[in-house]
């Protein structure tokens, strides 16, 4: 069931997930389309997430946006979600929820910067932008990085600071899958009023639209975006995984089937979360009922191969 409407206010709106935004020429969503999007969201009872470009919007846009409850996603501080492109430990973040878009290589080389950002942010979500080119060697290094990060986070928690970072702490609090669910629980409207599964589908192929406002989405085989139609994921307990359907399609040609890279990354994180839980349990009085069992695989595909 749809819950969220992601509104790309401009073709150059900030990319905030795995896919880069290839567009560089501004094209602001016409005001009537914005109005249509808001009307659609209100009628369908959807929470609205506005994604901003890197320039100031005209006043009439600001007042229309402020006429509904919403979340702002943009490159600058002051919104609900601040997107950082690359690791910049000195970035001004002002206690925000932060999304860091970075490559695994840059992330691995900048652990101190990440720790610094974590200590100043409410929640940090690291999004890897090189998921399509992850080698086994890089996956191994990522696992080692997570071990280092886990020790740092454990130290922070034991000293009374509880940072929140999607790679480690999200899994501690989850008892079921908490994926992106693009196309199932959220839909994205592009500046021209066309609807997409998520911004990545828009970036990749503008003709890959799933409908248009005001009619709303008309998705064929939409059931394949649901967890219960994902044979590998529905049995998985890497609950923090984004289960990115765009990555799925890029790597396996099917939206409901993850590539090995996404599974291994998520399981390295899951296992690091498990080690973190074991390490901090004696020092904290929460998470008493949570448990993450030990497993002997990094790719759940190995366990379900029929």
């Amino acid at each position: 069931m749809l819950k969220y409407l992601v509104v790309l206010l401009d073709r150059t709106s900030a990319a905030f997930c795995h896919a880069d935004n290839p567009y560089s020429v501004r094209e602001l969503m016409p005001l009537p389309v914005l109005q249509e999007a808001l009307l659609f969201a209100m009628k369908e009872n959807l929470s609205v997430q506005f994604v901003y470009p890197d320039y100031e919007l005209p006043d009439e846009y600001v007042s229309m946006i402020d006429s509904v409850d919403h979340i702002d996603i943009r490159h600058v501080v002051g919104g609900d979600v601040c997107v950082l492109d690359g690791m910049d430990g000195d970035a001004e973040i002002d206690g925000d929820n932060v999304v860091i878009r970075t490559t695994s290589v840059e992330l691995i080389d900048n652990l101190p910067s990440l720790i610094g950002l974590m200590s100043r942010a409410t929640h940090v979500a690291v999004v890897l932008t090189d998921m399509l080119s992850m080698s086994d060697e890089r996956l191994g290094r990522y696992g080692e990085f997570l071990s280092d990060l886990e020790r740092e986070v454990a130290g922070m928690i034991q000293s009374g600071v509880v940072p929140q970072i999607n790679l480690l702490t999200d899994r501690l609090f989850l008892a079921e899958m908490n994926n992106c669910n693009a196309g199932w629980e959220s839909v994205t409207v592009a500046p021209d009023g066309r609807l997409y599964v998520c911004p990545a589908f828009y970036y990749e192929d503008e003709s890959d639209s799933i409908g248009r406002l005001p009619a709303g989405p008309d998705m064929r085989n939409g059931r394949l975006l649901r967890l219960d139609h994902a044979p590998i994921c529905r049995r998985c307990d890497a609950f923090q995984c984004r289960r990115c359907v765009w990555l799925n399609r890029k790597l396996t040609l099917e939206v409901n089937t993850p590539g090995r890279e996404q599974c291994v990354v998520s399981h390295l994180e899951r296992n690091a979360s498990r080690r973190l839980l074991e390490r901090i349990r004696p020092a904290v009085d929460f998470l008493r009922d949570n448990d993450i069992c030990e497993i002997d695989y990094l790719d759940p595909f190995e366990t379900i191969r029929l």
Partner: peptide, 15 residues
């Protein structure tokens, strides 16, 4: 490309 084989090898009747 083993990723491209994964849908075929995880495909079941009910899905």
């Amino acid at each position: 490309d083993l990723n491209k084989l994964r849908p075929f090898l995880s495909l079941d009747r009910t899905t």
